[in-house]
């Protein structure tokens, strides 16, 4: 048993963080040049041929940086449904995808292609119009497709459980990044801001909720990494762990943003402060795919009714 990241994974994280700090809004082509869009694509298709644990590092760092663009929807959600040529196009930065699993479709402002599940297959959607909807999180727009019809068959729907595991885990990892950033901002602020002649972080009423936040995020991160590992080796518990990770991380990230706003006082409540963007992404993640209570209901069914553990 070894629950530590490899030196290569740590190096990838350091590189990703440095790049995203220098380049807050990278183009899809720039991510392709870094090898990120093809992180899990086989080397013979022009990808990096890495595992889901390496992909996990990128989801967490992209979440932390609130990087806009279709990385989550393309790499975590759509890619497992794509034939080899389309995977190669993603790796090359020539294509990006959204998979419409319900009426709301993410990143519809930027993706080159849209897939849709119907019957026993996943198909490319053709001859449709895009309509963007008003939402709060500007970094991850939502839209609906109008009209359209099924084009090429991409794969069987048998891939959908695997897609769901990857989607939930990627969301959990993003949430860990968002929450960690919100906590860092709070820690930095309360260490400097003085009232009554002392830094406000020296008051336990201010400090202890931040300690709680750290612990909730650590649990979330452990679950998200555990789910990512289970996916990477095809472990049978991957689905259950992914649901657990998304439930914990979605809640922990929202709570981290809420407590960070509270710790900042008025300044944290302003439009100019980065926290308004962080909490909107955290709320996006918490509600997307399945809400916390829906995930817990699934877990309860598995534990209590189906005797799964």
């Amino acid at each position: 048993m070894d629950a530590s990241p490899t030196p290569e994974q740590e190096e990838l994280r350091a590189q990703a963080r440095a790049f995203l700090e220098a380049t807050p809004e990278p183009t899809w082509g720039a991510l392709a040049e870094l090898g990120w869009t093809g992180v899990g694509v086989a080397e013979e298709l022009g990808g990096a041929g890495l595992g889901f644990l390496e992909q996990a590092v990128l989801h967490e760092e992209l979440g932390r940086a609130l990087t806009p663009g279709p990385f989550y929807g393309t790499v975590a959600v759509s890619l497992p449904a794509l034939p080899a040529d389309d995977q190669a196009a993603v790796a090359a930065g020539e294509a990006s995808w959204a998979l419409a699993l319900g009426p709301l479709v993410p990143d519809l402002d930027s993706v080159t292609n849209v897939a849709v599940a119907g019957g026993d297959g996943v198909y490319e959607l053709v001859r449709f119009e895009r309509e963007l909807l008003a939402t709060h999180d500007a970094t991850r727009p939502l839209g609906v497709v109008v009209g359209g019809e099924a084009g090429r068959r991409l794969c069987s729907t048998e891939v959908l459980p695997e897609i769901r595991r990857r989607s939930l885990t990627a969301l959990a990892l993003e949430a860990c990044g968002v929450g960690a950033r919100a906590l860092e901002l709070a820690v930095s602020y309360v260490g400097e801001r003085e009232q009554f002649g002392r830094p406000i972080g020296s008051y336990q009423a201010v400090a202890h909720p931040l300690a709680t936040t750290f612990m909730e995020l650590e649990l979330a991160r452990s679950l998200a990494l555990g789910a990512a590992w289970a996916i990477s080796v095809g472990d049978g518990r991957a689905g259950l762990l992914a649901a657990a990770a998304k439930a914990q991380a979605g809640e922990a990230a929202v709570a981290a943003c809420e407590r960070s706003i509270q710790a900042h006082g008025g300044i944290g409540f302003t439009w100019e402060h980065p926290l308004q963007r962080l909490i909107k992404r955290a709320l996006w993640i918490r509600s997307w795919e399945a809400s916390t209570s829906a995930l817990r209901a699934e877990i309860a069914t598995r534990l209590i009714d189906e005797g799964g553990w």
Binding site: L219, S222, L223, R296, I299, L303, I304
Partner: peptide
């Protein structure tokens, strides 16, 4: 049932931590 699932999530998080 919701509370039981929540505690299971917490348990698995603690185990992995």
């Amino acid at each position: 049932r919701d509370a039981i699932a929540r505690e299971w999530v917490e348990l698995e998080g603690l185990r992995l931590t």
